[in-house]
């Protein structure tokens, strides 16, 4: 496929006075509200996108705090109950010598959510302000954020599996803590935040720069 503009620079649908559908790629004249190929709502640029990104991101951040403070797991062994937070669980795993698994949990529940908050905030800022990172690199970053987001749910699933499996009455039982809920909600909110982002905005800012 070749670029329709035949110019050294890429011609966008917006620059050509047209509107592209983000669902199916079909091109429309401006003013069309619904795509006739796929039925998705279309807009040249989603103008409320950045606002929604910030709103969901803050919501995700807020619920991430209790997720780390409150216990994720309540373990009862021979009548004695102990509670562990997300970070506590990682430390426990390391004490047991399972470094590989500790690393997976640490990455999925702490590193990935935190870097996701930072990356989404950076991307949202980058369409409003000038940044040094090239549009290509930022697009790659966005793809990574989108891909990686759902994997943070691992810890919630681990808690569910442990809680359903380890129910041996008095000997040992594991029950989920309230942090599991806020963690799951936090992951969902950040996923919605990333999805609200209109990746075409990354390239718009870049173009404005080239044109003057």
């Amino acid at each position: 496929m070749e670029n329709a503009g035949h110019a050294p620079q890429i011609l966008t649908a917006k620059a050509a006075g047209l509107v592209g559908c983000v669902q199916c790629g079909r091109v429309h004249r401006p003013g069309v509200m619904v795509c006739d190929r796929c039925g998705a709502a279309i807009a040249s640029r989603d103008t409320t996108s950045v606002q929604r990104v910030w709103a969901w991101l803050f919501a995700g951040l807020v619920v991430y705090v209790p997720a780390n403070i409150y216990p994720m797991l309540r373990t009862t062994v021979l009548g004695k109950t102990s509670e562990s937070t997300i970070f506590g669980g990682v430390v426990d795993l390391m004490h047991h010598g399972s470094y590989g698994i500790a690393a997976i949990v640490f990455f999925a529940s702490i590193i990935i959510p935190c870097s996701k908050f930072a990356a989404i905030a950076f991307l949202a800022l980058s369409v409003q302000r000038k940044v040094r990172m090239s549009a290509g690199a930022r697009h790659k970053l966005y793809e990574v954020v989108e891909f990686v987001g759902r994997w943070s749910m691992i810890d919630v699933f681990v808690v569910a599996i442990l809680a359903s499996l380890v129910q041996l009455d008095f000997a040992a039982s594991i029950n989920p803590g309230i942090a599991a809920v806020s963690f799951a909600v936090s992951v969902a909110f950040t996923m919605i935040s990333a999805e609200s982002f209109d990746s075409r905005l990354i390239w718009d800012a870049d173009e404005d720069e080239h044109h003057g």
Binding site: M1, A4, I10, T12, G25, R26, V27, H139, W203
Partner: peptide
Amino acid sequence: LDELIACPSCDALYLERDVAPGETASCLRC
């Protein structure tokens, strides 16, 4: 309009070509 296609990720405009089975068309920019 029928002969055009816009990249859903970055809005780059392309002429619609028939892509042969087994081949992959990707956006030049993103």
